[in-house]
Structures are given as C-alpha cells and as structure tokens.
Amino acid sequence: MEQEHQHITSYRTYATVLAVLLFLTALTVYVTWFDFEALTIVVAMSIACVKVIIVISYFMHVKHDKLVFKLMIGMVFLLILVIFLILFSDYLFR
C-alpha cells in the first residue's frame, strides 16, 4: 500500500490562521454590541461558519487531503443543514 505524501504546514501559516481566528472572535463579540434584531443570530452564525471552515481546512489540514475527505465532510454538513430545514418545516408552520 502506498504511503501518502505528507504535507507539512509551516509554523507561520498556523500563526497566521490563529490571528485570523482571534480577529473573527473579536469581531463576533463586537458585533453583538449592536442590535441587528433578527439578523444578530445570522451574523453570529455566519462568522462561526467561516471560523469552522478555516479550522477544518488549515488546522485539520483537509485542504491538502484527498478529495474523498472533502466530499464526506461536505456531505455531513449538508445533512445537518437538511435536517434543520425539514424540522423547521414543522416548527415554523405550526
């Protein structure tokens, strides 16, 4: 069985990624001082999603992994999304 080529990420990249994540954390705390009404949750969740994508692609180095991993991860998040949508077809229309 072939051993896959191992991608080595540099320390600098990780430090940069951390800086971005910390900035986004600060941003998400900052924006909650303003009241966007119903949009608050959307903004907070959007930032969280961006953070999650960054963590998965860099810290969990999926960016350099085989395609099959990307497909699986995408499928799982899509599934969770679809479950939410279907469930709320009940709760939003009661």
């Binding site: 998400t28 909650t32 907070a44 969740m45 969280a48 998965i56 969990m60």
Partner: peptide, 23 residues
C-alpha cells in the same frame, strides 16, 4: 489526536455565540 482536539474546538466555535452572544 490532533483531529479530535480540533473537533472540541469546532463545537465550541458554535456553542460560544449561541450561549454567550445572543443577547
């Protein structure tokens, strides 16, 4: 082991705004 640790982080990324920031 690292992947598992990142998972703990991932979940917290969602928990944090949902529990602390929705005021």
């Amino acid at each position: 082991g690292g992947l598992y640790w990142h998972l703990v982080d991932l979940i917290w990324i969602f928990l944090f705004p949902l529990l602390y920031l929705i005021t």
